[in-house]
Design a protein around this nucleic acid. Sequence first.
DNA 1: GTCTATAGACGGATAGAC
DNA 2: GTCTATCCGTCTATAGAC
Lengths: 205, 205
Amino acid sequence: MKKTTKEQILEVSLLLFSEKGYDAVRVKEIADVVGIKAPSIYKHFKSKQDIFNAILEESNRRYALQTASFNMEGLDPKMDVGLFETITDEHMLEMGEALFNHFLHDEFTSKIRKLFTIEQFKNQELANLYVMQYMDSPLQYQRMMFELLIKKGLMRKGDPEIMAMQFFSPIFLLLVQCDANADKEMESLEKLKRHIIEFNRIYRS
Amino acid sequence: MKKTTKEQILEVSLLLFSEKGYDAVRVKEIADVVGIKAPSIYKHFKSKQDIFNAILEESNRRYALQTASFNMEGLDPKMDVGLFETITDEHMLEMGEALFNHFLHDEFTSKIRKLFTIEQFKNQELANLYVMQYMDSPLQYQRMMFELLIKKGLMRKGDPEIMAMQFFSPIFLLLVQCDANADKEMESLEKLKRHIIEFNRIYRS
DNA sequence: GTCTATAGACGGATAGAC
DNA sequence: GTCTATCCGTCTATAGAC
């Protein structure tokens, strides 16, 4: 099924906003890429700000869906933990790389993260969403997982909050580096592997 | 000695650019804060872009000075290592908190970091400077330090590059969180301490 | 729902007096 | 080196034909 003009406008706008920032993007630019004239945009959105708001709503919608699924199926840490009775390097590598690749390559996620990165200081609501979605949420998820792994005796006793931070923050730093310089991806993936193997060696019991 | 108008323009511009981004700041806004009329700006800078360039030059100047001093005095990792024959939690906490506080509270550094954060995707040069100054440089410094500490037998043998990443990336993540939400500073400092104590426990021999 | 034409406002920058 | 006055280009958004 073909994309509607409205969907195309949202898609193009997200791309441009995430690369140049809201203020630097012209309505004419969006229209040019979509292949229509600028005034036609206003048949679909009442203002440029309205486009931005729609993107934000879509982001919140997806985030809510994602966290809802955390408590029901597939992505619950209890389930993830249940998948392995022993922790091997392979398990951990898979989890870390999956997280890394999702954040880096998922069409929507990667653009929205860039958008939040460059628009976060405009208002506190944006800043809070940014921290919530790209730091606090993964940290909380992983904390729960490490808690369970410790309870099961698969990992050494320790502070699960700090363990989560020590596991996740290198992933976050490497993501920021790759966002800034896409050429670093291979190098970053290799460092990510070394980090996870080392982390596993340290905390696995 | 009083600040010249030119210096004031640069100072105010850095503040505004770092909060709202280059495109969202009006020349009139800068002039208002400085306390002059907008056209007077152009007696000091030939364009708005020229102000931005001057800020960038100042940033590069300071960065060059800083890295030059790494190889001569005070801040050489060889010297830092020489300061302690044993590694205590206190040594490590001091180093971590010093790094954290410098990045977070140094007038110029904290604003320039925010500016790089929100302008990085405008061109590759900015992105490279951002990664260099706020990630690669501290990582490289700490890698050298851990190499020396391992050689001295004060730390367990390991991959110094990964150790540096595991030590520094939580600091980086906490900084990003504090930039987005200044209220998190206390909480972040407390997490930083727990991280460093745990890191020290893991790698100290 | 797309177009052309254009309103209306604003922003960067210049001219020239003091 | 500051001001006032103003130009000129650009941008968001609307009006109205098709």
